[in-house]
Design a protein around this nucleic acid. Structure first.
Length: 735
DNA sequence: TCTCACACCTTTGAAGTGG
DNA sequence: CCACTTCAAAGGTGTGAGA
């Protein structure tokens, strides 16, 4: 795998121009720098919160002394290379720690169009107390700051925390206002990193092929895009309930361009779109104040993960089982629910990771796809009746409320009574919807009921976007995902100024299939327009593994990182560390992992765990011949992952030291482990029998998890180790 | 603004049936 | 044994009253 950092020197001082580029670099996916954002890598690299392990040579690598180079190997169809002609491209490639390889600096030669790589020596971890204090959730940024000499400022974009706008910092946020943007298939992104927020396009194909010999060109399309667009025009609302509510429309994607034999992990997460709380007033969404503290987020790993690209491409990938809840104490559904705040705006994100093992997610390259049409506001009760009607009309489970249903009859009675109370305008609107007028009439009707206009205060976000002191790595992580879109956004910016005006009338006549021109989240007139106003759908990002602190919130119960024992993961809410949290963390991970439950027959354990009844809608059946999820991946082996059958116990080359530091090493962390953490019988009846099936593998993987947790426990400044280990995990302590 | 009970509906899988 | 049908249970909906 590869970490890639590229630096792009922007010549223009035009604020808008800078903004255009800068916004693109703020890929929200990489703003996973706070506990409420999640990252798989946090499980394995939490210690990075305090310690920078990046090579010192990185500083040199990204220094201005690097000869200017052009990114001639740009392969982005939406690129605007001419706007980036004078740039330098540096790819800092950290071979996967798993592979035991040293980081490399990749330099693109301007003249020869060639790429050379230099291996960087690994340096001991650097204690960065002040940085850790300031950016506890983004250690790599801090590390990079030191390496680059740039002080880390708690730049809002560094942390997509409650106090930080997420998507407004990101071009996508500003793109939410509905402008034409390319289809997902039209966009190919390269990794990007720049302390000046200047993206450089680099072809994904090159990236991937250099990693492990697997060549893929993933394309993701949103299923039901038209329906999503309809909702988006009105301002999509998603009901959240205590027990969890499924999303409608459902999050379904069609994936293509995958390597048929390589294994992929597909994930979905939902992040706050901005820092505001909304209210529905006068038939429109308005900002009602600052956002409440963000709830802990969880990453939903598709239960079929990992499976081969061939399998993924066969059918639609559905994340319908993901539930939304506002129940902070939700304990049982941490695998399949995500906790949201009511009256807050959220943005789902789809992640595609080529990895044959969930445990390797942190070291794998994420491709993130953001479909702006899927943005929604979480509500406990529907606010916009047009949304309600749209749901009723399209959700089969709500048929009872349609014209022919009893529920509908009830509603009709209500309407009759309302008709005598309300104005004629409202009655007309309701009547049109109820009696199933064509869509275009629905759209026309939109003109009568003003539901458009979430007044996202973007200005502040924009202002916060470009702090020059932002470290290179911080920028890297923040807009890792946004290179291509950045370029396209730059073009799009000019288009935006035109398109936007045309969309103000609420007409969708110019709204193509990939458009979201009439988003109800369109900012009020006068709101700053960003270059990101026109964005590809989806917004795609490619990046290095998500950094340390993020996996926990996803795979761990919220209580874990709300715990005072985990200050680096702490949310604004503090709750005592519940019993068995660590075990639950294991369970959370294990439940997502086939091996731990021996589901080699083709069904993931996650699905078995959360619903033994079976995943009714599971799109795929995993072939039993796929092999263990713990099949070794040696990035440098140039061997197809799916074909590599190696020592499952020795496939991890990363060392997680007792002090929490990581280093590349050929020594597996669990090679000779005979101790597996005790697992309560309540995990799964299958687990016991499965131990027979593959005891060594289980032991190995459990050891992996154990090390992961131990890593957290031993975190020197977080004061979590003793408390956790003594109460939760002492029985499995192996250090 | 949120929770809850409710009616209505779809979906699923077991059970039954017939070839 | 297989395919098809039937049926009950589970679970997903929005509604509306009440807190």
């Amino acid at each position: 795998m590869r970490y890639e950092i590229k630096e792009y020197i922007q010549e223009s001082e035009d604020p808008l121009h800078r903004f255009a580029n800068g916004m693109a670099s703020y890929q929200s996916f990489l703003q996973l720098s706070k506990p409420t954002d999640f990252s798989v890598s946090s499980l394995l690299t939490s210690r990075d919160n305090e310690q920078a392990t990046l090579p010192t040579t990185l500083n040199k690598a990204i220094s201005p002394t690097i000869p200017t180079a052009t990114t001639s190997n740009i392969d982005c169809e939406q690129q605007t290379t001419q706007q980036h002609t004078n740039n330098r491209s540096i790819a800092i490639s950290q071979s996967s720690p798993i592979a035991g390889h040293l980081p490399k600096v990749q330099i693109h030669s301007p003249s020869t169009d060639s790429t050379s790589e230099t291996v960087l020596p690994t340096v001991p971890p650097l204690p960065l107390p002040h940085l850790a204090r300031e950016s506890p959730y983004f250690p790599s940024a801090a590390a990079m700051s030191v390496l680059t000499g740039n002080p880390v400022t708690p730049h809002p974009s560094l942390y997509s925390g409650a106090l930080t706008a997420k998507f407004p910092h990101h071009p996508h946020a500003h793109n939410s206002m509905g402008h034409s943007f390319p289809m997902a298939d039209d966009v190919v992104l390269g990794s990007v990193a720049s302390h000046q927020l200047h993206p450089v396009i680099r072809p994904i194909r090159t990236l991937q092929s250099e990693e492990d010999g697997v060549v893929d060109d993933p394309k993701v399309t949103l299923e039901g895009k038209d329906l999503w667009t309809k909702f988006h025009k009105l301002g999509t609302e998603m009901v959240i309930t205590k027990s969890g509510r499924q999303m409608f429309p459902q999050m379904k994607f069609r994936v293509s361009g995958l390597d048929i034999k390589a294994k992929y992990i597909l994930l979905l997460d939902i992040v706050a779109a901005d820092d505001y709380r909304y209210k529905f007033h006068n038939s429109r969404w308005m900002v009602a104040g600052k956002a409440d503290p963000e709830m802990p987020k969880r990453m939903y790993i598709h239960p079929d993960s990992p499976t081969t690209g061939e399998q993924w491409m066969q059918k639609v990938v559905s994340f319908h089982k993901l539930k939304l809840t506002n129940n902070i104490s939700d304990k049982h559904g941490f695998v399949s629910t995500t906790i949201l705040n009511s009256m807050h705006k959220y943005q789902p994100r789809f992640h595609l990771v080529r990895a044959n093992d969930i445990l390797k997610l942190p070291y794998s390259t994420f491709r993130t796809y953001v479909f702006k049409e899927t943005e929604f506001i979480a509500v406990t009760a529907y606010q916009n009746e047009k949304i309600t009607q749209l749901k009723i009309d399209n959700n089969p489970f709500a048929k009872g409320f349609r014209d022919t249903g009893a529920g509908k009859r009830e509603k009709k009675q209500v309407l009759v009574s309302n008709r005598s109370l309300d104005g004629e305008k409202t009655n007309t609107h309701l009547g049109q919807i109820q009696f199933g007028l064509p869509e275009n009439q629905h759209d026309d009707d939109d003109k009568y009921l003003d539901v458009v206009g979430t007044q996202s205060p973007l200005k502040n976000s924009i202002q916060r976007m470009h702090l020059p002191q932002q470290s290179a790595l911080a920028a890297w992580f923040n807009h890792l995902a946004g290179s291509c879109e950045s370029s396209s956004n730059e073009n799009a910016y000019n288009e935006t100024l035109q398109v936007d005006d045309g969309d103000k009338d609420g007409s969708d006549s110019s709204c193509s299939e990939s458009n979201c021109g009439n988003s109800a989240f369109k900012p009020a007139p006068g709101s700053p327009k960003s270059s990101a106003s026109s964005y590809p759908s989806p917004n795609i990002s490619v990046g290095p593994p998500i950094q340390p602190p993020h996996l926990l919130p996803y795979l761990y119960p919220h209580g874990l990182y709300n715990s005072p024992h985990l200050p680096m993961l702490q949310n604004s809410t503090t709750s005592p560390m519940p019993q068995n949290l660590l075990f639950n963390a294991h369970l959370a991970l294990a439940s997502q992992h086939q091996v731990l439950f021996g589901n080699y027959s083709g069904h993931s354990s996650a699905y078995s765990l959360q619903n033994l009844k079976g995943n009714r809608f599971a799109p795929y059946n995993l072939p039993g011949s796929i092999g263990s999820a713990f099949d070794a991946v040696t990035p440098t082996s140039k061997i197809n992952n799916s074909n590599s059958i190696k020592n499952k116990n020795c496939d991890s080359d990363i060392n997680i030291h007792e002090d929490g530091s990581r280093s590349s090493s050929p020594l597996p962390i669990c090679a000779s482990s005979n101790t597996s953490p005790a697992r309560p019988n309540s995990i799964s009846p299958k687990s016991a029998s499965h131990e027979k099936f593959n005891e060594s593998s289980c032991s190995s993987e459990l050891k992996n998890i154990e090390n992961i947790v131990n890593c957290l426990e031993s975190h020197p400044s977080k004061s979590i180790s003793s408390k956790i280990s003594s109460t939760e995990y002492s029985h499995s302590e192996t250090h």
